[in-house]
């Protein structure tokens, strides 16, 4: 909604509020509906792999699938700044302090 529209919105105009709220919530829900069923499982398995080397918690991994035209982008974010490297395991490249976020993107149709 433009600023002009906002300025001239009638005092009791609750319908436009309803419309805006619906557009936002439905955009979100429609995106979730097209997501393949394997995403939660993928997240769980990735977490278990990462957990072999690092002490991580559930919310440190975020997986999103976004569609832009013909291309879908699967984005996997692992938050590492709070994670601690497990001492028991020799980790390759452990001297290099991990950056805040590593990002992997796989593009496909």
């Amino acid at each position: 909604m433009s600023i002009l529209e906002r300025l001239f919105r009638k005092r009791n105009d609750t319908a436009s509020v309803a419309k805006e709220r619906l557009q936002i919530v439905l955009a979100h829900e429609r995106a979730g509906r097209t997501a393949p069923d394997f995403l939660p499982l993928l997240q769980k398995e990735l977490l278990s792999v990462v957990a072999k080397y690092l002490e991580v918690e559930d919310e440190m991994i975020k997986i999103t699938l976004e569609k832009a035209g013909e291309i879908s982008v699967l984005e996997i974010n692992v938050e590492l700044d709070k994670a601690r490297i497990k001492k028991a395991l020799p980790v390759v490249g452990a001297e290099n302090k991990p950056t805040a976020t590593t990002k992997k993107a796989i593009a496909g149709a």
């Binding site: 919105r9 009638k10 009791n12 105009d13 609750t14 319908a15 436009s16 309803a18 419309k19």
Partner: peptide, 11 residues
């Protein structure tokens, strides 16, 4: 709808 209390057909 005219009073802005209800979603219109177009909405």
């Amino acid at each position: 709808v005219e009073r802005g209390e209800m979603l219109s057909i177009e909405d």
